[in-house]
């Protein structure tokens, strides 16, 4: 069973990855393009003795997840852009209360109701906190069905390790395509959560809170969170490169868009163009130093995103004005083709 490969959609793969990581609580609300996710969970959760709840809204769903996390569960929710906006309240409270949870965003076009096609327009929201207050959430960006499976599995470990919400920023493409997935074994060993509320039998009562009214206490709490974020930034950066040896044009892209760039770069190489790809997997913490090192050899950098240019800000931070950065973007649900990107590679 452990090494079996099965064909799953991105939604199903993420949901199965969560279950195998020991997730035993899911609450969600329908929204395209992630409807397969709650549907799959509604069948699988009862099979593994877990809880599935179709909530009355995304606000309720995230607060149910908050409750399950308070009680010590590995808990998660999934949604798409407008629903993720509603979940920001709960995500901020979980960051403040230091509660672990996994939240999946199958990003669709915005702003507003937007459309239901794949997009990367929630990059700022995902990487800059998203809700109110001074906080960060670990943000993972898969580019394939296998990777959304693996990253969801990993996300629960990270959430528990740092007692912090972890976001998966995927999109409508990854949510719906079907690909073979190598399954991981079911996780048995879980972190012991002494801080969880389980009833105070044999110990002093536990409290979970984010309200600190005594002057100075919230400031101290915020610095404690900040030290945690710095530790995450030191330890958890992930990225991938392709054709970065003997390269003079570096393409930087993430998720679905990086996958299309991968194809464009393969085409470029066959035409003698020395292009390479840098793909951040953690969007927060962003792999600034790694990007800067990989880009040292490049003469030009092209950022490609399915938005009007959001990650380009992080690329600029990484490269500190050392090199000219070009941008190619398709907002509002536009998905670039590899030919389009190749044209751009040739143009710059």
């Amino acid at each position: 069973m452990a090494k079996k490969r099965v064909i799953l959609s991105g939604c199903e793969a993420a949901a199965e990855g969560a279950i195998r990581a020991g997730c035993s609580f899911y609450a969600g609300y329908p929204i395209t393009p992630q409807n397969r996710f709650p549907e799959y969970m509604s069948e699988r959760m009862p099979e593994v003795g877990g809880v599935f709840i179709q909530a009355e809204s995304e606000v309720s769903a995230i607060n149910m997840v908050f409750g399950a996390a308070v009680a010590g569960a590995r808990a998660m929710t999934s949604s798409s852009s407008p629903g993720i906006s509603l979940k920001q309240e709960g995500i901020s409270y979980m960051a403040g209360c230091e509660l672990p949870a996994v939240i999946i965003n199958m990003n669709r076009g915005g702003p507003g109701l937007g459309d239901v096609t794949p997009s990367q327009s929630d990059y700022f929201q995902a990487t800059r906190g998203g809700g109110h207050g001074d906080y960060r959430t670990i943000t993972l960006a898969p580019w394939s069905v296998q990777e959304i499976y693996d990253l969801t599995y990993l996300a629960f470990t990270l959430a528990d390790r740092y007692r912090n919400p972890v976001l998966i920023l995927a999109d409508g493409m990854i949510a719906q395509i079907m690909e073979p997935v190598k399954l991981l074994p079911v996780k048995k060993q879980m972190t012991k959560k002494r801080w969880a509320l389980t009833g105070c039998k044999g110990r002093r009562p536990n409290f979970i809170k984010s309200l600190f009214l005594t002057p100075g206490v919230l400031e101290t709490h915020n610095w404690k969170l900040e030290r945690k974020y710095q530790k995450i930034a030191e330890k958890e950066q992930m990225y991938d490169t392709y054709m970065c040896e003997n390269m003079d044009l570096l393409v930087v892209s993430f998720g679905t868009c990086a996958r299309i760039c991968f194809e464009a770069i393969t085409m470029a190489r066959s035409q003698g163009i020395k292009a390479g790809l840098f793909r951040p997997i953690t969007l927060w913490p962003y792999p600034y130093e790694f990007l800067s090192r990989v880009a040292e050899k490049a003469k030009k950098v092209l950022v490609v995103e399915m938005n009007c240019g959001q990650m380009i800000e992080d690329v600029k931070l990484a490269l500190r004005g050392d090199i000219h950065i070009f941008f190619y973007g398709r907002p509002g649900g536009g998905v670039p083709t590899s030919e389009e990107i190749l044209k751009e590679i040739k143009r710059i």
Binding site: V51, G67, A68, F207, I208
Partner: peptide, 27 residues
Amino acid sequence: YDYFNFDITEAAHGRPPAVATGIKRYL
């Protein structure tokens, strides 16, 4: 939580029933 001598959590404004649902379903 300052006045009750058992496990207590805060919840966002209006959300206690959702939080209670999460806790009770899990435990």
